[in-house]
Design a protein around this nucleic acid. Structure first.
Length: 101
DNA sequence: CGGGTGACTATAA
DNA sequence: TTTATAGCCACCC
């Protein structure tokens, strides 16, 4: 699991994101008590198993975009899952209305 | 201990 | 708007 206690907090914060809303890496890090720990959040997600129950797809970068290569499987999956929850993605960018929670 | 890396960000041009 | 730079921090050689 997590050798770093911060990971527990990160998972907890991500799990608290309401359906149909999204949050940025920086936001999550801050709420988890790790100011400036955006990269840690990203690292945490990159190690997440594919069968994780965590709503990792509700996590986007500060530009309101999906932080994955547009030609990757992860991108397509995240885009699809968000669309199912009613999150509007136009021109590769998340609607600002859903940006904060 | 030092250097490279990455699902990040803020700032400057 | 896009690209470049510089901080950032855990992790892996």
């Amino acid at each position: 699991m997590a050798q770093n206690p911060a990971y527990e907090m990160i998972w907890q914060v991500i799990g608290a994101i309401p359906t149909g809303r999204v949050a940025t890496y920086g936001q999550i890090a801050e709420l988890a008590g790790i100011p400036g720990g955006a990269r840690m959040v990203g690292r945490c997600l990159s190690q997440l198993p594919v069968d994780s129950q965590l709503p990792w797809f509700r996590v986007i970068n500060a530009s309101g975009k999906i932080s994955l290569p547009i030609d990757s499987e992860g991108y397509k999956k995240q885009h699809e899952l968000l669309q199912e929850e009613g999150v509007v993605v136009m021109n590769g960018r998340i609607s600002l209305a859903k940006f904060r929670w």
